Simulated assay, not measured.
Amino acid sequence: MADVLLVSLASTAGLRAADAGLAGALERAGASVAVVAPRAPRPVRTFALTDLAWARAARAAAARGIAEHRPDAILYGAMGAALLWPRPGAIRLDAPMAANRPGRHGLWQRPVERRRLREAPLLVAVSAQTLDETPRPHPPAVVVPIAVAPSGPSASASARDVAALTYAANPHKKGLDRVLAAWARARRPGEELWVAGVEPGARSDGVRWAGRLPAGEYRTLLRRARVFVAAPRREDYGIAQLEALADGCVLVTTPAPGPYEALPIARGLDPRLVGDDLAMAIRTALDDPAPGYAARAAAALERFGPAAVDATVARELLPALLGSAGR
């Protein structure tokens, strides 16, 4: 038997890492945790069909996990994992489908989401901004950020040999076209923008395609970069930006709708680097970085640190999970 069954959607590397981190925090709080994940379905063409395929796969994984582990409480790692659940449970949420599946993209998901929010015993939001977007009525909520920590010793700016880095696992949503256009205007001879998280694209002066990297190699690349560039069309959390700050990069970003956790931090660290003129902000970050930026970023990220998240999980989340299960 398990205290908690965590049903991980596991559809992206970010979700897999976030769920593994949450499971570890629950275990450190004293819970026995079983994690199940669906087998990846075959690719389909639309968001609606993709969500349906993953929801069906998650339902099968949850049913197997319930039968095998007989958990006291169930925690679905994402709304996509809960849409077709076999049994109600708590739902971890970074952004509701009411916000990130507009129009035909969320034709069936949005009404199902509203039912799940009425039926779930607990909502585990990754940020307070997530709750601002979440349809009501919804169950009682606990805010548990995704833990972020430095991946290793941070090099000084003078020791960093990569001028700029961007992460584009979903090129349209991450605004890769906007980043490349701004870089073409901002770069100087000898400077390179490294693009990670996506298959290599067209060759261009000053652009190096890093491809899809294992997590450790990607974080090593972050520690080599002076500037991290982001131009999302919508940001549901911004884990890549938070990791960049944790590893000592200066963050340049455009504003974006959604519960973009890194956005207010970036504005507080250096408002010159947040705006629609991405090329100018890149140049400012490279030529005139604000004094003490890395140290102030580290202080701003303390609430996302593993120790702070562990404390929230032990003090708030685990009692709420087991309480909602009748223990």
Results as ranks from 00 to 15, higher is better:
238 G>F: 02
14 G>Q: 08
3 D>I: 01
267 R>Q: 02
151 S>K: 00
194 W>T: 01
48 A>F: 08
176 L>I: 09
151 S>G: 15
24 G>W: 05
290 A>E: 15
202 A>P: 11
192 E>H: 15
317 L>G: 05
94 D>I: 01
113 E>M: 08
285 A>G: 02
214 P>K: 03
183 W>E: 09
163 A>S: 14
317 L>R: 03
287 D>G: 12
312 T>V: 15
6 L>E: 03
311 A>F: 06
214 P>S: 05
288 D>C: 14
183 W>N: 09
256 A>R: 07
7 V>H: 12
171 P>H: 03
129 Q>N: 02
148 V>E: 11
146 I>S: 15
52 L>C: 14
177 D>N: 14
189 P>S: 12
6 L>V: 08
104 R>M: 14
216 G>F: 01
22 L>S: 03
322 L>T: 10
8 S>P: 14
272 R>G: 07
114 R>H: 01
21 G>F: 09
98 A>S: 10
226 R>N: 04
25 A>M: 09
215 A>T: 10
244 A>G: 08
42 R>A: 15
157 A>R: 15
326 G>F: 05
51 D>T: 06
294 A>H: 13
267 R>Y: 00
231 A>Y: 06
184 A>W: 09
143 V>Q: 07
144 V>P: 04
189 P>N: 04
309 V>I: 00
82 A>H: 09
189 P>R: 11
314 A>F: 09
158 S>H: 14
4 V>S: 14
164 A>F: 06
9 L>W: 06
145 P>Y: 07
115 R>M: 14
12 T>S: 15
230 A>E: 08
169 A>M: 15
110 R>H: 00
264 P>Q: 01
210 A>L: 12
57 A>P: 02
138 H>L: 09
83 L>N: 00
291 P>E: 02
133 E>Y: 15
49 L>R: 15
98 A>Y: 10
310 D>T: 02
189 P>A: 13
4 V>M: 15
325 A>M: 08
91 I>G: 07
115 R>K: 05
122 L>K: 07
248 G>I: 00
162 V>K: 12
83 L>D: 01
290 A>S: 15
260 Y>C: 07
326 G>H: 05
287 D>Q: 13
250 V>S: 04
58 A>E: 06
29 A>H: 12
74 I>S: 07
192 E>M: 13
91 I>W: 01
34 A>I: 07
280 M>K: 06
159 A>P: 05
219 R>D: 11
283 R>L: 05
20 A>T: 08
13 A>Y: 14
245 L>N: 04
293 Y>E: 04
125 A>M: 05
263 L>D: 04
317 L>F: 03
167 Y>Q: 07
198 V>C: 13
289 P>G: 06
5 L>G: 02
141 A>V: 05
194 W>P: 10
189 P>F: 11
230 A>W: 13
34 A>Q: 14
35 V>N: 02
